[in-house]
Amino acid sequence: MNNWIEVCPLTEIAPLGSRVVASSQGDIAIFRTADDQVFALHDKCPHKGGPLSQGIIHGDTVTCPLHGMKLSLKDGGAIAPDSGCARSFAVKLEAGVVWLCMS
């Protein structure tokens, strides 16, 4: 069964910005793209654990703040030629509110 948890109104995340959600499974980064899509990844870069929430977002990609690895927001996969993957979580947007699914 899916457990959807309310996170925050979309307006509390800047476009091309992100917020950190503290959870029992560690920090989760919620991203908002320029066209108002939302994505969620475990806030830990597969390279050396950099906080992805602090990166620069472009298209549906985030650049890690520590050493510049690029990861797809869609599935957390590193953009070639890099490799590695950050865990991704399901998110949805309903009536301007962001929901996160942890299971």
């Binding site: 959600v21 503290a22 959870s23």
Partner: peptide, 17 residues
């Protein structure tokens, strides 16, 4: 200030469900 704040969520634990 929001940039610095971490969002706290209410998780539904397995027992509660």
């Amino acid at each position: 200030r929001r940039e610095y704040e971490v969002i706290k969520i209410k998780e539904i634990t397995a027992e509660v469900v």
